[in-house]
Design a protein around this nucleic acid. Sequence first.
DNA 1: ACGACTGTTCAAGAAAATTTGAACAAACTG
DNA 2: CAGTTTGTTCAAATTTTCTTGAACAGTCGT
Lengths: 191, 191
Amino acid sequence: MSTAAAKQEEPNDSQPLWREAELQAADAIGRLMEFWGFRRHMGRLWTVLYLSPEPMTTAELSDTLRLSSSAVSLSLGELVRWGAVRKTWRPGERKDFYEAENSVWKLLRRVYERRELNLIKEAVDAFAEAQARLEAARPGLGPEERRRVDFMRKRLSRLSALSKVGERLVRLIVAGRPINPTDLQSAEEED
Amino acid sequence: MSTAAAKQEEPNDSQPLWREAELQAADAIGRLMEFWGFRRHMGRLWTVLYLSPEPMTTAELSDTLRLSSSAVSLSLGELVRWGAVRKTWRPGERKDFYEAENSVWKLLRRVYERRELNLIKEAVDAFAEAQARLEAARPGLGPEERRRVDFMRKRLSRLSALSKVGERLVRLIVAGRPINPTDLQSAEEED
DNA sequence: ACGACTGTTCAAGAAAATTTGAACAAACTG
DNA sequence: CAGTTTGTTCAAATTTTCTTGAACAGTCGT
């Protein structure tokens, strides 16, 4: 009890001894997530919550990570939208409390589902559209140009095929089914 | 012959009819690669080369993509370092010619091997170091704080375990072996 | 309903990255 | 061996992205 009370009161001097370790882990995951196309702070916030036995307030988070409250609000909101963090309430308390979604696996699945699949689909669409343009242009071309265009079409359809195999693999991942990367390999077998 | 000669001479007006389709596909892959943490232009350059039946010069590339020669040099150099593009030479010609590595699968493998594995390893190291700090700090703590630290240690070791499973999965991908994503799932089974 | 306390949004400022032109270096030609 | 062409590097300038403080909005207790 005394510790919990003290933790809330202490402004920012006399940090707990474990703070450094906490930040180190948070930064490591922050880099990982940044690399993965998310805000760095999203990873840092999630980690701090993940390492905390109880939900935390935005004030505690901004104090721990030395972030402005607006930055916390922004990244935390995005984490909530991704389902990586949940809002919880405390009986009497007025503030919002936040806790981490603990299943990393669940999180990965959600991201692949929502984001990677979209990304691939957009690429597939772009390839299809490019193909259509080539076919439309083909009639008016001379033999030399026609050979050129046919080469492009062959290559484009290979890119399409690869993308579709990739899409299927991601779907299997999302479904938690085993996958075989050599499917990709065989998608570009014939040269 | 006449076409090939004309292509080299034409400055930038009267673009070939297929140019638009080419750029569309290039941009699609550019976005994909950007999302994957590479320069957008790397994807665009690779695609243009991939869609070309013969190797191209830097001049042709910068003309096609409307890029300055320095930008071409920079991104092309990086592509060469990644093995995504090869330099080739032509009998009489003075300029360098470039051609795309055609096996996307090979490229993916190389990137995972060189980049993702490193990334994961750094995270694993960070977790280990954070663990060590916690253990070092533990002796001087009261019972309340000790419980807090023990919670963190449990969580950190779970992150470590997850990372290591992830590392193993990536290694299997690189080796072209089938993988089972539920391994990740089971790495965080016990709560 | 008012006042105090939280959380969010926004626009200005700071920081980081990309882009480019020019200077430099290297390689081939006559 | 000069002169020309090609490729790379660098620093300045632009663009983009991040960050922040302040204004705004919402909620709860009195």
